[in-house]
């Protein structure tokens, strides 16, 4: 299993992702420059967090047309695994690889703090090793993370078990108070219908090293190691 972290101008969590998958989880990781067209035989691609293209126009809107995105989209359409974290999630919705959009946070501010996540399903590679009966503490750091989709899309996401994580409180209760950014139904992460493309606003890679105070994120990332290709 080889991991590729795509680096856009303005990405700033590419090193965090490489550290988590490479140093901490002992996997083979390479960085992929956004102007390249070679995915270097990576099995799982990661679009990291950051502010690609300065978040100009809309977060992720311009990165979506970076040269490497042709290959990234083709990889996903072939069934290849693709994970978007934070800005990476924003790029995936802009690219139409995941449904919905991420709007400006309801309170208009950039939010950087730890939140609790409740895995909503174990029927996806990213959540396959998680316990739906406990919470995972992982940081968020974004200004545009308010998940929105029209009523039909939201219904389909629920019906197809595509919601991976919801924001909750420490006890695992999914309440309006535990919703940091105004996301519909506290949605923090979703997958596509073929369950090979994952997007989430929280940063599991920033909660993977014991030095940083929590390793809950590491458990999320470890789920990805379950697959062999």
């Amino acid at each position: 299993m080889k991991y590729g972290v795509v680096v856009f101008p303005g990405s700033n969590c590419d090193d965090d992702a490489c550290h988590a998958f490479g140093t901490l989880l002992g996997q083979e990781v390479v960085k992929l420059w956004h102007k390249d067209h070679d995915l270097q035989d990576c099995d799982l691609l990661i679009l990291p967090g950051g502010f690609s293209y300065g978040d100009y126009l809309r977060s992720g809107a311009i990165a979506r047309f970076s040269p490497i995105m042709n290959e990234v989209i083709a990889h996903a359409e072939r069934g290849g695994y693709l994970l978007g974290i934070c800005n990476g999630f924003q790029i995936l919705v802009e690219a139409g690889l995941l449904p919905g959009v991420l709007l400006r946070n309801e309170n208009q501010t950039f939010i950087s703090r730890n939140v609790y996540l409740k895995p909503e399903t174990t029927h996806s590679l990213l959540t396959s090793n998680l316990d739906p009966n406990r919470t995972y503490q992982v940081p968020i750091a974004h200004a545009e993370g308010r998940y929105f989709a029209d009523a039909d899309t939201l219904q389909r996401l629920n019906d197809n078990d595509q919601i991976l994580f919801r924001y909750c409180d420490a006890q695992g209760r999914v309440t309006p108070e535990a919703n940091p950014n105004g996301s519909l139904e506290n949605i923090a992460g979703i997958c596509n219908t073929t369950r090979n493309v994952f997007g989430l606003m929280p940063h599991p890679e920033r909660a993977a090293d014991p030095l940083l105070g929590s390793t809950d994120g590491r458990e999320i990332l470890e789920s990805l190691l379950a697959v062999t290709v």
Partner: peptide, 8 residues
């Protein structure tokens, strides 16, 4: 294609 996101 780019300037507006028709979902929002």
């Amino acid at each position: 294609k780019l300037l507006a996101n028709l979902i929002m």
